[in-house]
Design a protein around this nucleic acid. Sequence first.
DNA 1: TATTGAAGTGAACGTATGTTCAGATAGTTT
DNA 2: AAACTATCTGAACATACGTTCACTTCAATA
Lengths: 195, 195
Amino acid sequence: MARKTGSHSGITGPAVREAAQRLFAQHGFAAVSMRQIAADVGVQAGALYNYTPDKQSLLFDLMKTHMDELLEAWQAEKSDGTPLDRLEVFTRFHIRFHLDRPDAVFIAYMELRNLSPENFAAIEALRKRYEDELEQILSDGKQAGVFHQPDTKLATLALIAMLTGVTTWYRGDGRLTREGVADLYWDMVRKAVGA
Amino acid sequence: MARKTGSHSGITGPAVREAAQRLFAQHGFAAVSMRQIAADVGVQAGALYNYTPDKQSLLFDLMKTHMDELLEAWQAEKSDGTPLDRLEVFTRFHIRFHLDRPDAVFIAYMELRNLSPENFAAIEALRKRYEDELEQILSDGKQAGVFHQPDTKLATLALIAMLTGVTTWYRGDGRLTREGVADLYWDMVRKAVGA
DNA sequence: TATTGAAGTGAACGTATGTTCAGATAGTTT
DNA sequence: AAACTATCTGAACATACGTTCACTTCAATA
């Protein structure tokens, strides 16, 4: 957490978090040293401790912020239409949000092991809340007779894995636009639940 | 690589690889020390260097062996039926193979960043060969008019991500059997490609 | 029984780690 | 101009790392 206000030249809390996010995503949490992060923001290692109590908190802050933003963005985007409409909105939202934050997504999925037990539980709870949003849509759609997945919980996990996978291969300079990718995933999601 | 034959009490090459696999999967490659691996097999750190030239080679051996086994097992399992039959065989094979090796799968997907460039290229080539197996099935099925995915390459990546995701949540003591899980994934895969 | 040689020990190597802190630096306030 | 205070440096702390190696151990061989 940053101090009140920078008084001289100075780096910023966000700058530290951005550098950490980039480096953690590129090399992994355990493989990145505080000195590397410091060098990236142009400062000595000791100065980082004005912005974070320790390295572990830096990781947790990144993951917590990411999950909070995910849930908040979804609350702002979700709508009240038919299950089919809601599923399409969810699919396109998920693709867009994740393509916008490849580093944060990578960290959120890969560095869970490096969290302390309490921190891990906190992140898992947020992840579950997000999964529940999709599960509710699938559940409503099945009740309405428009979706036909035999197991709603498994379908939830399978679809999220499929959608999140986009971050592992999509490159902005490839043959597909972001909208094109979303269209194609939506086609598969809709069919997968039998709608 | 292990020496010819143990002459006294002795650990074994496989024992070292198994300990490394378990620990790498649990805590991550960079977070596990050679001393931890040594302690796990009941030996001092220096003794490990009778079985591997260095830590990096230990990781590469694990990933290479995993990918070789994956491709070899698939070659033994794949059949010559209709595209729909072949897709079902692939789906059930993938689920079964991956559920049998959660640690190896975890490492193969999470530790790519810790490989040297040459080692990375080698693993990526093997992964691509596996993806091509599924892509060929999807391509044949589309040509035959039985599958209807608009983009075969994306469908390949999406389906593999969906199927591989099973390792992140499946626990043997849960409510679903391995066969039940395979049935449910097969239902989604079939529908997702419009068959 | 004497010899061999692979397997393992335990200490050492140089280097790197996360974190702390006294002191220097320099805007801001009085 | 003086006092204040947030910021950053640079050195130091204890600990850990991957790797090497002279030496011991001990089953198998001759």
